[in-house]
Design a binder for these strands. Structure first.
Length: 364
DNA sequence: AACCCGGGGCC
DNA sequence: GGCCCAGGGTT
C-alpha cells in the first residue's frame, strides 16, 4: 500500500465515521486551540462539556484575555491539570497583545504560546490553517507502531522520533488536518489499546501487527513506577460567624490557583489530630483545637494517592496568616461554590453545603 | 532522560 | 489494582 492509497483509505473511513465534536469543522482557530489544550491527556467525552461551558464564558480570545484567572480556573474546575488553564489564559493575553488577537498560523510564533508544545502546534496549524504538520499523540503512536510493526519501547524519545518520521512521511498534502484527525480517530475508536476492531479497520490489509497477531503486544511500553500512598490531615476551621477558612495555593504549586482547606502529610508515629495541629501551626501560624472527625476520603493523583482525614477545628490562639499559601479567607458555607477547589477538597465542600442546607448541626 | 502534573473510565 | 487518555513544563 503506497502513501496515496493509505491516505484515501483513511480519509474515506474518516469521512464516513468521524464523531461529532463541537469544535470540529468550526474553522475558528481560537476554538480549535482551546479544544486541543483541553484534550491533552483527556478523553473527548470528558472534555466536551467543559469546552461548551468554556465557550459560553469566553466566546473569543479577547473575552479570555480580559477575564480574571480565578474565573478561568472556576470554569476549568474538575478537568484537572490546572496549569493548562493558567497557561492558556496567559497565552490568550499574548495573542491579543502581540498577535493582533489572531492565533498564530506559523510554527515559530505558535510555539511562543505557553502550554503549546509539538503536538498542539501541529494540531492547530493543520486543523485550523491546513498547514502540513503531522501530529503524534498516544493514538498515532499506537496506530503507527502496530501498522509498521514497531516493537521498541514507545516511551523512549528514540522510538517517538521514528514514529514522528513515519507520520511526517504519510501525511496528506491536500487534507493535512483531516489526515491528522483521522489517524487519531482511528486510534480512539477502532485501534484501541485492548481488543481493537481490526475486522473493520481500513488499514488492516498492510498492518504488521494484525498480520502477525501481535496487536496485544504492540505498542510495547515499559512499566511505570507504582504510586506512593500518603495520609493527609486537613482542618476545617470555623469561627463564631459560621464561616470557614480557606487558603489559596501558589500558582507554581500543584493545583496552583485553586483553594483548599489547609493541612498536610502525616509524619511517622504521629496521630492524625497532631498532624492537623502541626500543619495548621506551620501553614497559618495558629494554635487550633481539633474538635471532631468530619470526613475521610481516598483520592488518586497522577503520581501518588492520598487518604484525606478532615477534622472540624477551632482557633484557640492567633490569627491565620498566609505562610505556605498565597492568601487566606473566611467565607460562608454558601460561598464555597464560588471558588475553584480541587476534587478531593470539593468532596468536603459538598458535605459542608449539604449539612448547611439541611440545617444540620455544624457546631463543634 | 526523568520526573511532575488531575481526573475519569475501563478492564 | 493498573492502564490509558488529541502532552507540556521543569530539572
Amino acid at each position: 500500500m503506497n502513501n496515496t492509497e493509505l491516505q484515501s483509505r483513511l480519509l474515506d473511513w474518516y469521512d464516513q465515521n468521524k464523531r461529532n465534536m463541537p469544535w470540529r469543522g468550526c474553522g475558528d482557530p481560537y476554538k480549535i486551540w482551546v479544544s486541543e489544550i483541553m484534550l491533552q491527556q483527556t478523553r473527548v467525552d470528558q472534555a466536551t462539556p467543559y469546552f461548551e461551558r468554556f465557550m459560553e464564558h469566553f466566546p473569543t480570545v479577547h473575552d479570555l484575555a480580559q477575564a480574571d484567572q480565578q474565573e478561568v480556573l472556576k470554569v476549568w474546575e474538575g478537568l484537572g491539570y490546572y496549569s493548562r488553564a493558567r497557561h492558556l489564559h496567559a497565552a490568550s493575553k499574548l495573542v491579543v497583545n502581540e498577535f493582533d488577537g489572531k492565533v498564530p498560523d506559523n510554527w515559530e510564533d505558535i510555539n511562543k504560546l505557553k502550554g503549546v508544545g509539538p503536538y498542539t502546534a501541529a494540531a492547530v496549524l493543520s486543523i485550523a490553517f491546513q498547514k502540513k504538520h503531522a501530529v503524534m499523540d498516544g493514538n498515532v503512536i499506537r496506530v503507527l507502531s502496530r501498522y509498521f510493526g514497531i516493537e521498541d519501547n514507545v516511551r523512549t524519545t528514540k522510538t517517538k522520533n521514528i514514529i514522528q518520521e513515519y507520520a511526517d512521511e504519510l501525511i496528506s498534502e491536500e487534507r493535512p488536518g483531516d489526515f491528522n484527525q483521522a489517524l487519531m480517530e482511528l486510534g480512539a475508536t477502532l485501534c484501541t489499546p485492548s481488543s481493537p476492531e481490526c475486522e473493520v479497520c481500513p488499514l488492516q490489509k498492510n498492518c504488521v501487527a494484525f498480520k502477525t497477531l501481535r496487536t496485544e503486544e504492540i505498542p510495547y511500553k515499559s512499566k511505570k513506577k507504582k504510586r506512593p500512598h500518603h495520609q493527609i490531615g486537613v482542618g476545617i476551621i470555623m469561627n463564631k460567624e459560621e464561616e470557614v477558612l480557606i487558603a489559596l495555593r501558589p500558582n507554581d504549586a500543584m493545583l496552583g490557583g485553586l483553594w483548599e482547606f489547609p493541612g498536610g502529610k502525616q509524619n511517622e508515629d504521629e496521630e492524625m489530630p497532631d498532624t492537623v495541629r502541626r500543619e495548621l501551626k506551620e501553614e497559618l501560624d495558629v494554635d487550633v483545637a481539633v474538635k471532631k472527625p468530619f470526613m475521610k476520603l481516598d483520592h488518586a493523583y497522577s503520581h501518588f494517592k492520598i487518604t484525606m482525614h478532615a477534622y472540624l477545628c477551632e482557633i484557640q490562639k492567633g490569627t491565620p496568616k498566609p505562610k505556605s499559601s498565597q492568601e487566606v479567607r473566611w467565607i460562608s458555607i454558601d460561598e464555597l461554590d464560588d471558588y475553584p477547589f480541587p476534587k478531593a477538597n470539593r468532596k468536603l465542600t459538598e458535605k459542608l453545603m449539604n449539612l448547611n442546607r439541611g440545617q444540620q448541626e455544624l457546631e463543634i
